[in-house]
Design a protein around this nucleic acid. Structure first.
Ligand code: MN
Ligand code: MN
Ligand code: ZN
Ligand code: ZN
Lengths: 149, 149
DNA sequence: TATCAAATGAAATTTAATATCACTACCTGC
DNA sequence: GCAGGTAGTGATATTAAATTTCATTTGATA
């Protein structure tokens, strides 16, 4: 999906909600789409300052929430203080393994786990809207290796 | 496992760490074991005040962390502001479905999902220490039902 | 272009969690 | 049992993410 199309979809979403399409919202969405990986609002704000020093902190907070509502971002936690966001467009659904030592994040996806989740939800007549699977532990670099002796 | 044994295990854990077993720590652990479900530190503190008005807020925070370290509690988030804790003793490992409308929490466990998680982790040579699977959506009461027409 | 409600940005506020620090009490050795 | 050192406690202050407030600005519509 082209950046152009995403911006248009966002504009449409905003219009449909009876809201206003502002320069700030566009700039923030662009910056968010440019940033890769899992960003905090703070990090996004810092990036934005370079090109758009006028944009306020509150607006970034407000807009990332709007982007999330529009379905263009996913909220993540990773057991840190600040929440992180990740773009959904151009990114297949996946879950995360977080190394508690080096903080490295490994992305994985398991259709079989996804399927079992819907099975469980069905059993409880629960309608899944989102889910979050986070595995914490030690990555292959940080885990203790077998002694050579 | 008897309360008595849990307290003893906690005492042992504390001793092994070279720490001190205090009245407060025992009182907080007892209150935590008595509380069922998923409690916040605030909620736990409020319960404690009834019998132990002297115990400070900071101590409850510090001790719940100690209880967690001792492996007697699990930390949960549920996308709320405050973290929640759940006892591990006398509770089989399980994951959670959270209704975003009524905030009801449904516990479930799926050995098959657990197994698939270890499979994925093995593939990445990742050593699992803990994990968290949270499904958000609408419970059977809150989800929209089929129209009668 | 005028209108006006929505949006913005700076600052204040909220709130969970942590840090500080004088005082207390647990533990060890005697 | 008693004393000494020292980890733990509790009141308070602080931190930091996130939200709210509000005067001012700006986008959409006519
Ligand atoms: Mn990711
Ligand atoms: Mn539970
Ligand atoms: Zn690592
Ligand atoms: Zn519900």
């Amino acid at each position: 999906m082209e950046i152009r199309e995403i911006l248009e979809a966002f504009r449409q979403y905003i219009k449909d909600k009876g809201l206003r399409y502002t320069k700030q919202r566009e700039a923030i969405l662009k910056a968010f789409l440019r940033a890769d990986g899992h960003v905090t609002v703070e990090e996004l704000y810092m990036q934005l300052r370079k090109k758009h020093p006028g944009i306020g902190f509150s607006t970034v907070y407000r807009t990332i929430k709007l982007i999330e509502d529009a379905g263009l971002a996913t909220r993540l936690s990773f057991d840190e203080r600040a929440e992180r966001f990740e773009k959904t467009v151009g990114t297949d659904h996946h879950d995360h393994m977080v190394c508690i030592r080096c903080r490295r994040v490994i992305e994985f996806e398991s259709p079989r786990i996804e399927r079992l989740q819907t099975e469980v939800a069905d059993k409880y007549r629960f309608q899944i809207l989102s889910h979050r699977l986070e595995i914490f532990g030690l990555c292959n670099i940080c885990r203790p290796h077998k002694s050579l002796v």
